[in-house]
Amino acid sequence: MNATVLSSTTAPAARPARRCRWCDTLDAWLPKLVVAPTFVCSLVFVYGYILWTAVLSLTPSRLLPNYEFAGLAQYEALFDNERWWQALSNLAVFGGGFIVICLAVGLLLAVLLDQKIRAEGFIRSIYLYPMALSFIVTGTAWKWILNPEFGIEKLVHDWGFTNFTFDWLIDPEWSIYTVIVAAVWQSSGFVMALFLAGLRGIDDSIIKAAQVDGASMPTIYRRIIIPSLRPVFFSSFMILAHIAVKSFDLVMALTNGGPGFSSDLPATFMYSFAFTRNQIGLGAASAMMMLMIVVAVIVPFMYSEMRRSRHG
C-alpha cells in the first residue's frame, strides 16, 4: 500500500466546489418546480373541473352552458327519468355479475395455474391478452359472436340442436348480460394475474408448516391461502368496481345501449345526454351521480380495509 498517496499536496480534488448561492437556491426549489405543473393541472383539471361540473349540474344548461341557478332541478329531472333508473339498475346487475364472476374465475384460474404447471407463462399470456385489447374491439368481436343470426345460435344449430335459441343481444331483458359476458372475457385474466402474484407472495414455509401439521391441500387453501389473499381481493374489487362504473366503450360497441335503452349504463346515459341530446345540465348531474357512486363504493371499502390493516 502506498502511504503517501492520500496526503499528496497537489490534490485539486480537495478544492471546494465552485460556490454559487443562487444555484443552490434554485436546486432546492427544483423538486417543487418540477412537481408544480402537474399539481396545478390536477388542481384545475380534476378538482376544478369536478367543481365546474357540479356547478353545471345546478344550472338549466342545455346545448350551451348557462349559468343561471336552477337548484336541484336537474337532479329531480334525473331521478324522474326512467332511462336513468334503467341505467342504475343495469349498473347494479352488470357490476355485481361482472365483479363476482371475475373474482371467482380469476381466483380459480390462479389456483389452477399455481400447481406447478408446465408452460405456465404461455397459458398465462393467453389468459391475459384480452386486457391488451380495446373495449371497442372486444365489443365488436362479441357482438359478432353473440349475433343471433350467424353467431353461437347458428353454431349450436349446426351441431344438431335446432331448438336452441340464444338471442340475449336483442332481448331487452337479457342484453345487459351480454355486456357481462364480454367484460368478464376481457378482465378475468387480469384478476387471475393479480391473484397469482398474491399466491406467489405467500411464504412457502407457512404452507409447509400446515402440511406438517397434517392439513390437507383443500384445507390449506380454504383456511390459510385464500384468507391471506385478502388484500388481493380488496385491490381486485376496487379495480373491477372502478371498471364497472366507468364502463362505456364496451356498451357502445356491443349494444349501443340497446335494444331501446335496455342496456344503458350511467356512463352511456351521461354521454348521450351531455353530448348528443344537448342536455348539458342533466348530463352534468348524471356525471356527479357517477362520481358519488364511485365514492360510495370505494371509500367505505378503503376505510374498512385501512382500519383492518391498522389494527393488525
Binding site: T38, F39, S42, L43, F45, V46, Y47, Y49, I50, W52, T53, L56, P65, H242, V245, K246, F248, P266, A267, M270, Y271, A274, F275, I280, G283, A284, S286, A287, M288, M290, L291, V294, I298
Partner: peptide, 15 residues
C-alpha cells in the same frame, strides 16, 4: 391528490 385523479370517473370532467 394526484392519486385521487386516477379514481374519478372521467365523465365528471368531460363537459
Amino acid at each position: 391528490m394526484l392519486m385521487i385523479g386516477c379514481f374519478i370517473p372521467f365523465q365528471v370532467v368531460l363537459l
